[in-house]
Design a protein around this nucleic acid. Structure first.
Lengths: 193, 193
DNA sequence: AAATAACATGAATAAACACTCATGTCAACA
DNA sequence: TGTTGACATGAGTGTTTATTCATGTTATTT
């Protein structure tokens, strides 16, 4: 028989996850300790290990959650786009707005490069591959120029991620519309006269 | 009187620096210990502290060295460019080739985000500001379109850095010419038909 | 009410690691 | 040749920290 969820601590796991996201954002993976996370979540150190096998285990969980959220956010944003150009604008805009709301994402994602290179590679490969597929389809429709979709996908991900990190997270730029407009100029006509 | 350089250990400092770059590349700043660096350099742990005040001190030294090298590499590459478009191509190509030779750079640079956000911000701000200045001049000459040079500089740095990290370092792509060509297509005409 | 098992605790453990320091070595100069 | 001081050593120190575990506590089932 399936035992109903106890009421002891309500959403303890969820509280640990939120606390970890916050601690990793503030102090990073190596700088943030299990004690920091447990304190922030309002539980004892040992409680952490009821819900996660290890610090790395929780980190991997968080990383995959962020991947899901970004994908969901993007696919909702572009679902009604009339063409690829519009899809690109909407996708970029929604990503910038997502970053504005949750500025911890790069601290979680990019640190994977230092925890295990494969985590970083897998994370972005997933995005790049599905992006490249979309671009290929758009090329067949004649909406996108003849550019290696693999390279183009990394170009687009590179632009959005790097600009978001530097302009929005580090420089605290709030005007995402302006940034989207300027980025779209490049994507539409290039940068040269 | 200036004492001539002793011959005890030849270029001990240089060996420590090289070892550190390698260790940080393999294991990251937090994952790589002073013992790792000392072993790799073939010196005792204590010797490290004759040449550097702390692990962080060495890290900052390495970071600034990479900044200098990249700037030097780029300014040499573009010095004979006839116009901005050619300068862009040459700059990107030389950066990719630099990364191909010294794949540790991103592990050094990007980790600053987790050691001290200001280090990362300062590092890329320096590049972005001088890049933006160059772009402004090119805009006055009518060579570059009317795009916010601040945003454009981050777009260009984002492309080069992200593509280099993913394609060259992580996917071990050797054909930099192909990548440069595809990137230049976007910068010349945008990505849409 | 007793039994059960999930949930929770936090002190204890063991390993890792940045940094120190007392001691040693060697090249240059008086 | 003896003195000097830079260069080098590596065992030791103190701290931090991920993880464990013996011991509670509470909600549910019998």
């Amino acid at each position: 028989m399936v035992r109903p969820k106890t009421q002891r601590g309500i959403d303890t796991k969820e509280r640990i996850i939120r606390a970890a996201a916050n601690v990793f954002y503030q102090k990073g993976y190596y700088g943030g300790s299990i004690s920091d996370i447990a304190n922030e979540a309002g539980v004892a150190n040992g409680t952490f290990y009821i819900y996660f096998d290890s610090k790395l285990d929780l980190y991997k969980y968080l990383l995959s959650e962020y991947g899901k959220r970004i994908r969901a956010n993007s696919s909702i944003a572009i679902q009604n786009a009339a063409n690829r150009k519009e899809a690109e604008r909407l996708g970029i805009k929604s990503f910038f707005e997502y970053v504005l709301k949750d500025q911890s994402i790069f601290n979680i994602i990019w640190e994977s490069l230092y925890i295990d290179k494969n985590l970083f590679d897998e994370f972005y490969s997933t995005f790049a591959e599905s992006y490249a597929q979309q671009l290929k389809k758009a090329q067949k429709k004649g909406e996108v120029s003849n550019i290696d979709p693999k390279v183009l996908s990394y170009v687009l991900i590179g632009i959005t991620n790097f600009v978001a990190l530097n302009s929005i997270v580090l420089k605290q730029e709030k005007n995402t519309t302006h940034i989207v407009n300027e980025v779209m100029k490049v994507l539409e006509n290039g940068m040269f006269e």
